[in-house]
């Protein structure tokens, strides 16, 4: 079903003049070939006006772009901002020099788009300041002299393999990820899932590198609390 010629869906509106020439080259590329294509081939096909190439790019990066936008303008405007970012990206696609990866380039675009939008809506880009986020390190954890008052409890599941087998726990983790404040959620995702550097994360989220570290740490602490609770109760 996915198997159709690329330019069948190319419309004159999207294809640039040079894009039309490139369409010929991409004529025999099928959608399933595109799915496994490297970034360059995907970009070439998109420039040639392939809807299929755009769809694959959106599938791959849209939700990450929404996460970054949500960290900056809040969840209610995030989808809108991410879609605007695709429009900007589409217009600039032929100018993309491909020194950075497509992901990096798209995240930079959505970040700029979100920062502009936040200014326009006069929303402050403030760091989530909810000390109660992480109940793991609450005030009772430490005594006045900075020693553990309530020591970290022992885990009976304390190897990566043992934890990997707990399907219920994985569900708890995913539930928790959805509930994290947007900045923490984006920071965690960029760092621990996408393995981005703190330098990149701080740029994309419009916070200092130190604050990017704080956001990631808070997200991990919240998750640690969930696992800790699960070890004791077998529940979220």
């Amino acid at each position: 079903m996915l198997y159709y010629a690329l330019n069948a869906f190319a419309s004159p509106g999207l294809a640039t003049v040079s894009g039309w020439a490139a369409t010929k080259k991409g004529f025999n590329l099928s959608a399933s070939t595109l799915l496994n294509a490297d970034e360059h081939a995907l970009l070439d096909a998109a420039i040639a006006g392939s809807d299929e190439a755009y769809t694959i790019m959106v599938e791959r990066y849209h939700s990450l772009m929404v996460a970054v936008a949500a960290a900056i303008v809040g969840p209610s405007l995030a989808e809108d901002v991410a879609q605007d970012a695709w429009f900007s990206a589409h217009r600039a696609l032929t100018k993309f020099e491909r020194r950075a990866s497509l992901k990096t380039w798209l995240l930079r675009i959505v970040s700029n788009e979100a920062i502009t939008r936040a200014k326009r809506e006069s929303r402050h880009i403030a760091l989530d300041c909810s000390p109660s986020d992480s109940s793991y390190l609450d005030d009772e954890r430490f005594s006045g002299n900075g020693h553990w008052a309530r020591k970290p409890s022992q885990w009976h599941l304390d190897t990566p393999d043992a934890l990997m087998e707990e399907v219920d726990l994985h569900r708890c983790i995913n539930k928790t990820l959805l509930l994290l404040p947007p900045q923490q959620r984006a920071a965690f995702r960029l760092r621990d899932i996408e393995q981005a550097t703190f330098e990149d994360i701080s740029q994309w989220l419009g916070v200092s590198a130190a604050n990017a570290r704080v956001l990631v740490h808070r997200a991990r602490l919240t998750l640690l609390d969930v696992i800790d609770h699960y070890q004791e109760t077998g529940q979220c």
């Binding site: 599938e59 939700s63 996460a67 990566p160 934890l163 983790i173 899932i193 640690l224 800790d228």
Partner: peptide, 20 residues
Amino acid sequence: HLALTRDLASKVGDVESCSQ
């Protein structure tokens, strides 16, 4: 524990993706 948390969540963290 923190390292285990990070490693587990990075593996099983089911980031919502955009459907076709």
